[in-house]
């Protein structure tokens, strides 16, 4: 099982090109989602109608890119973040009431990443899921298994 060096080099080059092409295609493919789209549309025109805190079922299984701030929940031995909550505004935990369940995403990562700063927003790409969960105060919410994380540039 020996491949001529030139051939193996060519295969490697092809693989790299393919990987670049695929990653490029994926970056284009995942549509950008806004936080507003994660709230169900109002059923009535009544301005006083309470906006729902439930997730939009149609978003289940969609691969999207979502920008937001990171609230770390779990880190590994090296201090890299492996689980976090993605929220639409910074300081979601201190100054103002926490976002409703449909305005936060529970994200788990295959590979822990190095969070630079709590103030730094990120683009998170992955497949959204609507997780059924019922308790006295909350029902279903969004979860995501992140595939790609990149810094958000203003």
């Amino acid at each position: 099982m020996t491949i001529a060096p030139a051939l193996s080099l060519r295969i490697a080059a092809l693989a790299v090109l393919l990987a670049i092409a695929l990653s490029g295609a994926r970056a284009q493919d995942a549509p950008k989602l806004t936080w507003e789209e994660m709230v169900p549309a109002k059923t009535s025109d009544d301005p006083l109608a309470v906006t729902s805190s439930a997730p939009v079922p149609a978003l289940d299984g969609r691969t999207v890119q979502l920008p937001g701030f990171i609230v770390p929940l779990e880190s590994d031995e090296g201090g890299l973040i492996s689980e976090f909550l993605l929220v639409p505004y910074f300081g979601a935990c201190i100054h103002v009431p926490p976002p409703p369940p449909n305005q936060l995403v529970y994200v788990t990562l295959e590979e822990p990443f190095n969070l630079v700063s709590l103030q730094q927003p990120y683009w998170i790409e992955g497949t959204l899921q609507v997780e059924e969960y019922s308790s006295e105060v909350a029902d279903s919410h969004y979860t995501m298994r992140a595939d790609r994380i990149s810094k958000y540039n203003y």
Binding site: L85, A92, Y106, A138
Partner: peptide, 28 residues
């Protein structure tokens, strides 16, 4: 039971009127 509820409970504890308390997410 669900980590998604952490921000809500944190808020509730931090605003508890009967005793001044601090709740933090250890990772944060």
């Amino acid at each position: 039971e669900s980590r998604v509820q952490v921000l809500r409970l944190q808020r509730t504890i931090n605003e508890y009127e009967r005793e001044p308390l601090t709740a933090v997410i250890p990772a944060v």
